[in-house]
Design a protein around this nucleic acid. Structure first.
Lengths: 333, 333
DNA sequence: CTGAAAGCGCTAACAC
DNA sequence: GTGTTAGCGCTTTCAG
């Protein structure tokens, strides 16, 4: 950021005042047409670009929003980011990206960076940021939209998919068909979702006067759940198993095949997150489709509304999922 | 960004001057210990955080770097982003994320945003940003690191993997075994890589006095290459085919299975990008492993060096790949 | 319709 | 050691 052409240069060159230049670049106030033309010509000639930092200082807003994610490499997260990026472009916001990587960064540093950078708002998609952290942000007047958790508050909204309900409905269906040996696989990378899945199952079981107990936790000794699952399903079998991530569902599928368990006839599999891999793998994996891109896009849209004090119809926006029965389940419903 | 506690508040409360406060928060200059203590106490009590925007203005640098990617949802891109994020945390840089999505954003807007935001530097991983665009950035003194293309210049470095060489070696190996029916699948989303792959193959063929001609282009009518490939391999077969993305390799695998083509005995498949899905799918897909995370991490590291005028051992950094023969190829070498 | 001037919050000479 | 002050580049009253 060495010497660049500034508004002074433009003003001098066009023989007008700073104020006038400022008016033409912002379209604020009235400027006579010839004056405007002249200024615009100089701007073009000099290749002047307003310095957003200085604007930020003067206006006390940055048209930048902070985005916090846990892990950028999941396809689901990528989609969310894409959604946010696309909408933010439309409303001319910049995105400051932060990630909560265990070990390298701790949450307090991120909070710090967010506050210092003076973002106008933030979108958070991460289990790792807790209520307490968000309190700090709110103290600094940062409007926040949370993705994935149903939560709201003064300057806090959320966009989520009701996973609990999804699982509840699915499990209920199976129970009413008399299939009671249903298991849910933990997703250590998404504790919150795992919890919701279990809640949904519990409710469904309770309705049938049964108790849900097949929550399969991944022992922490395993670096990847994949390894564990391949072992587990070499020795265990359920009528139906629900996993969160595609790779988990695939692990189950693989070990089923290796152990001559027929999917879907001996064991059915449903995956919560829907990614393209679910339809690439054979058999195609039945799954809910969680609208990742929309989660991102909608949350960004809501944030823009908050920032412009527009009316919000609801602070907790629930996006609907679709159930896509494919080849790992027996009944299409 | 409403009224926040400023350096003035701290100075007044601690009964010292701005300069002193500035000195303690920056660790610059010398401050007597009791004074320092007092200031630190006030800072803590008031919850003061320096405003990075104002700092940016005063210092004419932002400790923010711009990151441009084509598409955030590929696992490969996600890994690159993770690498960049981790390193940027270490050196205390913020990341401003931009994506070049066809239709929604055009490149000139991104260039504009980057310049206006006054980033200290930029990392670009996108085929869509051309030389001409980078020239503009350089005119504005933005040091740039490009990922994926071998390129360099005044304030321009790059980090890449020599895909051409990888393919050259692989193809040479096959040719020397007398396997000449080798095909390469176009990846429309990564034209540059496709081009390199073809170059590598051409050279290898030329060495054997042969001509490479099986570059399979995906007709633009197809929204996804997956569909096309399933059709193509229902009617065609090669001794060996090389694809770039995992989903393409899987498409080939699927249609091979459906058409009773035995992989690897009737047809071998190699994928360039290595993702976890390559080892999840059965048979496991042989592939090169392109160190995505490292591409990101190294490029960010180089950028920090450029920004601090540290010595750079090379402006075009080539990262090495590994070849992982798995179950879609016959020979392990 | 346009210009002058006072900040926005912070840093960095330069004094004291 | 610590305080004073002049910017950094821009916006926005308030006069004219």
């Amino acid at each position: 950021m060495i010497k660049r052409v500034t508004i002074y240069d433009v003003a001098r060159e066009a023989d007008v005042s700073l104020a006038t230049v400022s008016r033409v670049i912002n379209g604020s106030g009235v400027v006579k047409n010839p004056t405007r033309k002249k200024v615009e010509e100089v701007i073009a000639r000099l290749g002047y670009r307003p310095n957003a930092i200085a604007q930020g200082l003067a206006l006390r807003k940055t048209t930048t929003i902070g985005l916090v994610v846990s892990e950028a490499s999941f396809s689901h997260t990528g989609q969310i980011i894409n959604g946010i990026l696309d909408v933010s472009k439309i409303y001319n916001y910049n995105i400051m990206l932060h990630s909560v990587t265990d070990g390298i960064v701790d949450v307090s540093e991120i909070i710090d960076a967010i506050i210092k950078s003076g973002v106008d708002g933030a979108v958070i998609y991460s289990d790792k940021i807790l209520e307490a952290d968000m309190d700090i942000l709110r103290k600094y007047q940062v409007p926040i939209v949370v993705i994935g958790n149903k939560i709201s508050g003064d300057s806090l909204c959320s966009v989520y998919v009701d996973i609990e309900k999804a699982v509840y409905e699915l499990v209920s269906k199976y129970l009413s068909e008399g299939k009671e040996d249903i298991a849910i696989i933990e997703d250590r990378r998404n504790e919150y979702i795992s919890k919701q899945m279990v809640e949904g199952a519990k409710k469904a079981f309770k309705n049938h006067n049964l108790e849900f107990k097949n929550f399969i936790e991944i022992p922490s000794a395993y670096r990847s759940s994949y390894k564990f699952l391949v072992n587990y399903f070499a020795e265990n079998k359920h009528q139906m198993v629900i996993a969160n991530r595609d790779s988990q569902a695939m692990a189950i599928l693989n070990s089923a095949r290796e152990n001559a368990i027929d999917v879907p006839n001996d064991m059915e599999i449903v995956c919560v997150m829907d990614t393209k891999y679910n339809t690439i793998v054979r058999p195609n994996i039945s799954s809910f489709s969680i609208p990742s891109y929309d989660l991102g896009a909608v949350s960004m849209r809501i944030l823009t509304k908050m920032l412009q004090n527009e009316e919000l119809e609801e602070k907790e926006k629930c996006l609907s999922y679709l159930y896509n029965p494919r080849q790992t389940t027996k009944n299409n419903y």
